[in-house]
Design a protein around this nucleic acid. Sequence first.
DNA 1: CGTATCTCCTGCAAGC
DNA 2: TGCTTGCAGGAGATAC
Length: 275
Amino acid sequence: MPELPEVETTLRGIEPHIINKKLEKVLIHNAKLRWPIPKQVKKLEGKTVVKLMRRAKYLQVFFDDGQSAVWHLGMSGSLRICSAFEERKKHDHVEWQFDQDTVLRYHDPRRFGALLWANLGEEPEQFDNLGPEPLPIYQETTEFSGEWLFERSRKKTSPIKTFIMDNKNVVGVGNIYANESLFHAGIKPNKPAGRVSKQKYMQLAECIQDVLAKAIKQGGSTLRDFVGGDGQPGYFQQELFVYGRTGEPCKVCGSKIKEEKIGQRSTFYCGRCQR
DNA sequence: CGTATCTCCTGCAAGC
DNA sequence: TGCTTGCAGGAGATAC
């Protein structure tokens, strides 16, 4: 399940293959993704890729006329480069053919992903309510910080885990990294966001950044569906301290990792290390 | 407005 | 073995 680091890894994986190349052919085998693929995407044929950027979990590809296509990998989506002669797999929904050795294929069994469209100087409306980037990769700075989270969270009664998974507060933190960040910050996931101290938010902001940066460094982690941009299986998987470790001993204190549902999502934590 | 729940989809695993 | 059921989850939609 691609989170921010996996999207960043995908971008870095495909960029060298498609930058400054002309898109010769667009094949849409199944336009029914999360939203129907806009027909403008077909008109990308003949245009050249000039830049790739990531915003939250969106991967934006700019062409030489200033227009852009925006991928979202959803739950099970992946982008990879392959040869034109490689047999298409089930759930390969979209192909961008640059040359015989350079075909970008979008694979997505669950079709929670999307391919969006943006005109020159515009962004998809999905970008409208996005909060700050946790890592200043595409800007020099980011307004994301412990202070930011603290101020945003005042009087919020929902659990801290739900709070950091809300794109309006910080983008790119999905279930795995939310669980891991909260463990490293020593915060119980169900603690109301408004009752977490400023000091704890300072720690949490740092942990979120560390966990994401580490995952990017390791090439993105994932559980089952991600395939790296170069077609390498994405099972790099950084060491997980709590996610999926129900009943196993905490790597810090040895007590059993607990599991419960928060906002319909599986949540893992150490009852001793997290308060 | 904030908060909680539902929803899309397919593959996999567990249970009978 | 073969069925049914439930679960995984990003994030928009919907309901209160």
